[in-house]
Amino acid sequence: MIRNILILTLNDLAIAIKNKSIYLIIFIPFFVFVTLKLIDSPSIDEIPVKIGFIQNENYAPEIMLTVKAAGQIIKVTWVQDLQEGVQLLKEKKIDGVLLRNTNKRDSLKLLVLKKESFHTIVIVEKFLALQKAAEGYRDAWISDIEELYDGGIQRQALPTWILMLVLLIGFIILPAQVAEEKEKRLILALLQTPIREVEWLIAKVLTGMLLTLVAILLLHILSGFGVVHVPSYMAFIAVGGFCFSAFGVFLGFLCRNQASARTLGVVFYLPHLLPSALSDFSQQLSAIAPLLPSYQFYGPVKTILLEEGTIANLSFEWGYLLLVGALAFYLSSILLKKRWLMK
C-alpha cells in the first residue's frame, strides 16, 4: 500500500513538472523575496520629502526655523494658497501641504493624497525626528492629518480591486481558455469554416473586454461607489480590458495546454498586480511600477476614481495601453497563422 502511494505521489509530481505547475513553487517564493526587498526601504531618512507651505500662513517660528535648517531632507515649496497646494498635490509635484492647525496652538495639519501611504509615513517620521532634535519630545507638531481622497479606505481600495479583476481575466481566465481551445483542437475546427483568423482573435479579445466590463460593473453596484467622469472611466476600462485581454490571448498561444497556461498566467499576474497595487507604500516599488502596463492602467483608474481626473490629462497612459494591446494582438495573429503548437 505504501509503495503504491509513493509511486502515485511520484507520478503526480512528475505530472506537475511536466505541466510546469512546479515552476510556481520556485517562482512565487522568489517573487515574494524580490518584492519584499523592494518594499523594505532601509534608508527612509535619505528620501527627501517635498512639502508645500502656504504663503501668509502664520506658522510657528520654531517649526519654520527647524524645517529651513533641514533643507537636505525636507524640500519646501511655497504656494500662494491652499488651492494651489491641492493642485500641486494632485499633480504629485509635492507630497503634502502643511497648514496651521487652528484647533491647536503651535501645531500643524498635514494635507496628503492618502493617509495610508508611504509618503505620509515618511513625512510624519521626518517631522517627528526634526522635532526630537530641535526640542526633545513634546506634543507632535503634526497634530492632524487630512486626506484629499474621499470615500474612506473602501473607496481607496477600489482601484486595486479593479486592477485585480482586469488582470485575473487577462492573465488567468483567457490564457487557459485559449490553451484549452488549442489543446482540444477547437480552434482548428473553427478554422475549417470560412471565418477569418482575425475574427476569431477579435472575438476572444471582445470576450475578455465584456467579462471585464461586467465584473467592474458588478463591483460598482455592490460597493455603491459612483464615478464622476464616466466617459473617461469607460475609456480606461475599455483600453485596459483590450490591452490585458490581448495580452492574455497571446499568453494562451505560448502554451500547449491549460495547465501550463495557468502557470504562465500566474507568473505574469503577480508581477503585474503587486508592484502596482503596493506602489503607494514603497518608494522603490513606485519607481519600478510605471514600467509595467498594469501601472499605466492602475494609475489613471486611481486618478479618475479618487481625484476626479479625466482622460485629457491621461492620454499618454491611454495610448500606451492601446499600443501594448495592439502589439500583443499582432503577435497572437502571427502565432495563429503559423498554427503555433497546434499540430
Binding site: R185, L188, L190, Q192, T193, P194, I195
Partner: peptide
C-alpha cells in the same frame, strides 16, 4: 471537410448547439 481521429467538438454543449454553431459559420 476534415474529420480528425479525435472528435474536436465543444464538449460542454449539446449536439444540436454544435451543429448549429458550425452551420452558422458555414452560412
Amino acid at each position: 471537410g476534415f474529420v480528425p481521429e479525435i472528435p474536436n467538438l465543444f464538449d460542454f454543449f449539446t449536439v444540436e448547439y454544435n451543429l448549429k454553431l458550425f452551420a452558422y459559420l458555414f452560412r
